[in-house]
Design a protein around this nucleic acid. Structure first.
Ligand SMILES: [Mn+2]
Ligand SMILES: [Mn+2]
Ligand SMILES: [Zn+2]
Ligand SMILES: [Zn+2]
Lengths: 153, 153
DNA sequence: GAGCTTATTGCAACCTTGTGGCGTTAATGA
DNA sequence: TCATTAACGCCACAAGGTTGCAATAAGCTC
């Protein structure tokens, strides 16, 4: 067992475009860039991290607000997952077609907010009381990641 | 099985005072009020909810910042749990001496951020990869609570 | 490919949650 | 009761996120 990089294949550019087009919405450069970036990421990224990586791309920087909107659009369209990290900051990850992220566990660092995929499948779902509508279940393990543990042992 | 009120007994005022005193820090009215409030709460509360409940208490309202500091102090002292809800807002709950909250599951509403204790014990902990330091594990079930489901079916 | 329509973008202002600094107050111990 | 200093109140500020609206550029029709 180990902390794994996303098992997702790098996903070609045309593939990304057609995935976006399939939702019925417009294929914009912002959407393509961000979705591609999430596909190639090791784990869920926050707005700031994405902004930084985009700024290293030499393409014209996209607006802060546009990035927020693109991310929320991806989530709402079902192409990305959105979830608050331990520090209360939202992180986004590409939603693989097979829903892989929903089936394994995650380690969430309480120091840096980082999320790490663990190659362990989740326990099965329990039944819920009347009136509750299940959306998803996540077994989150909290603690300090190797990186942060190294800085202040 | 049901969504339960906290199984914690209401905890007398002198008991609360002595618990705080036992930490070595000063017993202030702010700390006593907030800790007592958390003890009697049905589930984890956010800053805003706590502020509202305190304002209904006829005692002089405590400052916004003081409340933040009291809450963080309670968490740091081990008397409360602090965790971000689905909307990225921190919620606090009294840490029972037997660590009850750490052993059962929680339902987290993606609409209002509410947290509900479920009377189901958690699956056992897996082992972690090298370098990761475990702090706690939580099996979080996400979805929409009965209240929010009622508002927009 | 040019022109039309309207979904997206960029920008500015604003909101909410949470922090840091500092003088004042009040809990504790003598 | 008095002295010490941890906590508090108040102010300004930071970070993450949202709203409104005019300007831009996808997608469609021709
Ligand atoms: Mn994952
Ligand atoms: Mn925030
Ligand atoms: Zn970390
Ligand atoms: Zn709800």
């Amino acid at each position: 067992m180990k902390a794994s990089p996303n098992a997702t294949a790098p996903a070609s550019f045309p593939a990304i475009e057609s995935t976006i087009r399939a939702t019925g919405a417009r294929v914009t450069t912002s959407r393509v860039r961000v979705y591609a970036l999430l596909q190639n990421a090791q784990g869920p990224l926050c707005h700031r991290e994405i902004e930084q990586r985009l700024s290293g791309e030499a393409l014209p920087a996209m607006d802060r607000v546009t990035l927020y909107r693109v991310l929320d659009w991806l989530a709402q369209a079902g192409l990305a997952h959105k979830a608050a990290d331990t520090r209360g900051v939202f992180r986004f990850s590409a939603a693989t077609s097979d829903g892989e992220h929903l089936r394994h566990m995650h380690f969430r660092c309480t120091a840096c907010g980082g999320v790490f995929c663990l190659e362990m499948s989740q326990p099965s779902l329990p039944e819920l009381p009347q009136g509750f509508r299940l959306a998803s279940a996540e077994f989150d393990i909290r603690g300090v990641c190797p990186d942060c543990a190294g800085k202040r042992p």
